[in-house]
């Protein structure tokens, strides 16, 4: 059975000013699965991730050619509503970045911006999002506390809950667990396992074992090019490309 595709790029090139960061990337990412992007630093994986919600637009002098579609709709055009796009394509960063507000406000902020005003509706959404992010039980009695007082792992889950609160279809994660201890990392990884099936998740990670554990598909980037893309179990047992093999076995990079 053919997989439902969520994101398709065709001959995507990306430039920071004169410097080309991505070369001819053509990839088809399945819906409601986890895709890991791996590769050595500077290989373009984070750039690629940020293309998917036009996050690179905030950097001056960037431009892209080629096509990027989500559900068949090109998102590279100048007239794209970026606020609407980023509602559909949520993002979680390496370093957790809660707003200096209460736990409740952190989650309710996005939905409010998108026009939700009903208090009960907001409360229900806050609970739902925190539950999805496996944080509810830890914070339900202190939703008014400052988010910045939470532990690092809790802050990261709060940021995931915040991303989920605007009900995105796609979740981009840029090294979401690299600053966390093993236990907090496990919680994030478990969470990713629970969220897939409902969301299309793209995760950038330097932790090869993490990519192997959490993802269904893996894309290996090297020097701005997509070297290999396939099922994770294939990439980690029998990669087709020698450079992929050398990278995943730690022979370079």
């Amino acid at each position: 059975m053919a997989k439902e595709l969520k994101i398709i790029t065709d001959d995507l090139n990306f430039y920071y000013g004169e410097k080309q960061a991505l070369f001819n990337i053509s990839i088809e990412l399945p819906a409601k699965e986890v895709t890991a992007l791996i590769g050595p630093s500077g290989c373009g994986k984070s750039t690629f991730l940020r293309v998917l919600n036009r996050m690179n637009d905030i950097i001056d002098g960037t431009r892209s050619t080629g096509v990027v579609t989500i559900d068949g709709e090109d998102i590279t055009g100048k007239d794209i509503d970026l606020v609407a796009l980023r509602k559909r394509v949520g993002m979680v960063f390496q370093k957790s970045n809660p707003f200096p507000k209460s736990i409740f406000e952190n989650i309710a902020y996005g939905p409010k911006i998108h026009g939700m005003t009903d208090k009960e509706e907001l409360s229900a959404l806050v609970e739902k999002s925190l539950t999805q992010a496996a944080l509810w039980d830890e914070v339900k009695d202190r939703l008014g506390d400052k988010a910045l007082n939470l532990s690092g792992g809790q802050q990261q889950r709060l940021c995931i809950a915040r991303a989920l609160a605007v009900e995105p279809e796609i979740l981009l994660m840029d090294e979401p667990a690299s600053a966390l201890d093993p236990k907090a990392t496990t919680r994030i990884e478990n969470l990713i396992g629970e969220l897939k099936g409902e969301y299309t998740i793209i995760i950038v990670t330097h932790n090869m074992q993490q990519a192997a554990r959490v993802s269904d598909n893996t894309a290996f980037f090297y020097e701005g090019r997509l070297i290999e893309f396939g099922l994770t179990k294939g990439i980690f047992t029998k990669p087709a490309n020698k450079r992929t093999e050398d990278y995943v076995t730690g022979r370079f990079g």
Binding site: A212, F236, T237, P239, E245, T249
Partner: peptide, 9 residues
């Protein structure tokens, strides 16, 4: 070491 690919095989 959690080897992968050729090392795992």
């Amino acid at each position: 070491h959690q080897p992968v690919a050729i090392d795992l095989r």
